[in-house]
Design a protein around this nucleic acid. Structure first.
Length: 358
DNA sequence: GCGGATCAC
DNA sequence: TATGGTGATCCGC
């Protein structure tokens, strides 16, 4: 069983049952049903309890599940109460960033399928290359097979850092505390900017993207929503060179997230997608809600809260405080350890840091 | 507090 | 011929 799934969920079901059993039985089968007059409730409870002690039968498992459902719904109410629709977040993502920069610097590449990277690994593919199925994180020799005319360009991170800085100067105008995720991606809180200029978020973001293009010569896409989770998902919708606005209304958010395939959610990767699909037949975000009792029974509290938040379209709205790094390292496929030690030592010295643990 | 697994870029 | 590197988080031990 995958580690993601709680061990108690299969080991402790029979032992935790006695408690939940009485409660559940009482509510679901005695109070709710008509025609139960004259039944000795205590006796029925005792019989059920004795029969289920240490048992692993299907019926007892189902009873415990009803209780979990009740607890899960309490969590749901709590999450809903904390929903914040007061802010407007933008997620900005440069289109095929590394490839676009290389094309800008060398216009002869325009309109051609190019891949930034080498025969072992591709960082970015131009949109022309993507038509052939070439993708980032794909080995270069496979990409060449898919697209024989593919042009390989060696990555040059000095260039990308330069253009990233240009775009960030624009971001700073709209939100001085913007969150830079990577060279080509950032989150901006434009709540104040929209109010200040009496502009809709769509207008503000349209203008922002224009300024990014003016400053860099590069196009970008953007997603707008009440929190960073949905804003990021929105970016993909009209990519490249487009934007999508999700209104700050609960119904709009829920309608948006419900049919979304879970793999589109940041934080749900290949493994989690597979577990949710193969174990619980969960495919879209609405399934996370209907299968909430199963999720609660199988996953940790942290994971459960995450999945339920996703199902409701609730995400982070507070800007995280600037934190210092927790680790620093170097890693190489096949190389001597002492080389790596040199690199780590150099970087530690640069930041005036010392390692506690090697 | 550590290593493994997972995830994002 | 050939499948990366950096940093974070969660979990079990």
């Amino acid at each position: 069983a995958p580690k993601l799934i709680k061990e108690e969920s299969w080991k402790l079901v029979p032992t935790t049952l006695s408690q939940s059993m009485e409660k559940t039985y009482d509510t679901v089968f005695l109070n709710a049903k008509a025609g139960m007059d004259g039944v000795d409730k205590k006796k029925v409870q005792k019989v059920v309890y004795e029969m289920s002690k240490g048992s692993n039968s299907l019926s007892t498992k189902r009873l415990s599940c009803i209780c979990i459902h009740r607890a899960t719904d309490a969590k749901l109410v709590k999450l809903e109460a904390g929903r914040d629709l007061s802010r407007t977040w933008v997620h900005v993502d440069m289109d095929a960033f590394y490839a676009a920069v290389e094309t800008l610097v060398d216009p002869s590449l325009a309109g051609k399928p190019i891949a930034v990277g080498g025969t072992s690994m591709i960082c970015t593919a131009s949109y022309e290359a993507r038509k052939f199925g070439v993708r980032s994180a794909m080995p270069g020799f496979i990409a060449r097979k898919l697209c024989p005319d593919l042009i390989f360009v060696k990555p040059d991170f000095n260039k990308y850092t330069h253009f990233s800085e240009l775009s960030r100067e624009v971001f700073r105008e709209y939100d001085p505390n913007f969150i830079g995720v990577s060279l080509d991606e950032a989150y901006l809180d434009i709540t104040g900017m929209c109010r200040l200029r009496s502009m809709s978020s769509a207008e503000v973001v349209e203008e922002l993207r224009g300024k990014v293009f003016a400053a860099t010569g590069l196009s970008c896409s953007a997603g707008v929503g009440p929190n960073r989770l949905v804003a990021k998902v929105c970016t993909d919708i009209n990519k490249p060179d487009g934007q999508y606005v999700l209104e700050n209304r609960r119904s709009a958010v829920v309608d948006f997230i419900s049919p979304l395939p879970i793999r589109k959610v940041p934080g749900i990767g290949k493994v989690t997608e597979r577990i949710l699909r193969e174990v619980l037949d969960i495919n879209v975000c609405a399934d996370l809600l209907t299968k909430r009792a199963h999720i609660s029974a199988l996953f940790s509290q942290i994971s459960t809260e995450f999945f339920l938040s996703v199902a409701l379209g609730i995400g982070a709205t507070e800007a995280p405080q600037h934190e210092q790094r927790k680790s620093l390292g170097h890693e190489r496929t096949f190389s001597a350890l002492n080389e790596l030690a040199e690199l780590v030592a150099r970087d530690l010295a640069r930041e005036d840091l010392q390692g506690r643990t090697v």
